[in-house]
């Protein structure tokens, strides 16, 4: 039934595009209405969330899966990919691809000038593309360094992904627009987890955020690039030191943190022992 409806729609749109293609000026504007096709699929997928069940009693709670997504562009692309088993909607996809290519070209052009001046918006946009947002310098009054919480997040910075929890250090490629002692929000979070639950993004979790502080801009150890061609008297050596940024993760937000019942009981448990030994 559903498939039949779809077929009919496709036929309709094909007819429509054939009609429009006779008029060349109209063709650029023409977009076959995709919504009635896409909508039912969406609801279908959201009806069956990913549920992980586990025989282990510690794990037995139902995992929550966020069904909301960010990035409308991604959504559309994904759906079109899902539906492209049939040979329709080609026009749409070509348009999408063109747009995507154009975007990436723009980025590469803007990224190549090393000494160009950036406006505040450009800085923000580039930082957002990498996956961070600068909040401002760390004040002395800020109490951001907290004890460890048993919660982790998988996050993406640039093209690297890290599994972090509170108090970790990560080395990323140098982040351009931040100074040492700045506070950052890392917002490309792919997964959140605690000991009892896991939240999986599809692909990102829009509500989650990881807070971090910039600790160091430093150079990595020297790498020697050595080129040689045999029998040609050709040798080149070149040194390279990669710029890195060290971040300390301060907070993982977006998942309820289990109370830390393990540590306080342990500490009192240890103290009496010590007292006993001393006595």
């Amino acid at each position: 039934m559903f498939m039949a409806n779809r077929r009919r729609l496709q036929v309709l749109t094909r007819h429509a595009s054939a009609l429009f293609s006779t008029n060349t000026t109209f063709q650029s504007l023409q977009t076959p209405p995709p919504l009635p096709i896409y909508q039912p699929l969406k609801t279908l997928t959201s009806k069956f969330p990913l549920i992980f069940t586990n025989p282990d009693p510690n794990w037995s709670q139902i995992r929550h899966v966020s069904s909301s997504r960010i990035g409308d562009v991604n959504e559309d692309n994904e759906h079109s990919e899902e539906e492209d088993d049939d040979d329709d909607d080609d026009d749409d996809d070509y348009y999408d691809d063109d747009e995507a290519v154009g975007d990436s070209e723009d980025e590469s052009v803007s990224g190549c000038g090393s000494k160009r001046e950036y406006t505040a918006e450009e800085k923000e946009a580039e930082a957002a593309a990498i996956g961070y947002q600068v909040i401002g310098p760390l004040q002395k009054s800020d109490r951001v360094f907290k004890p460890y919480e048993p919660v982790f997040a998988v996050l993406q910075i640039g093209s690297h992904q890290f599994k972090v929890s509170n108090g970790d250090c990560i080395f990323t490629e140098r982040l351009k627009f931040c100074e040492v002692n700045d506070k950052l929000i890392l917002n490309k979070v792919l997964l959140l987890g605690s000991s009892s639950q896991t939240i999986i993004g599809r692909p990102l979790l829009p509500d989650a955020a990881v807070h971090a502080v910039v600790e160091e801009h430093a150079l990595d150890a020297k790498v020697i690039i050595f080129k040689k061609k045999r029998r040609k008297n050709y040798r080149r050596t070149k040194g390279h030191r990669q710029e890195l940024t060290k971040l300390r993760i301060v907070d993982v937000q977006g998942i309820e943190k289990p109370e830390v019942p393990e540590k306080p009981p342990k500490a009192p448990g240890k103290k009496p022992e010590k007292v006993a030994v001393a006595a």
Binding site: S165, F171, T172, V180
Partner: peptide, 26 residues
């Protein structure tokens, strides 16, 4: 500025880019 921005640790090749005291939660 680079001197100011660095920690004063020895320059060694990093074994890992992720340093943690608590390797696993689950």
């Amino acid at each position: 500025t680079r001197l100011r921005n660095s920690l004063g640790r020895k320059v060694v090749k990093l074994k890992t880019r992720h340093v943690t005291k608590h390797p696993s939660v689950q």
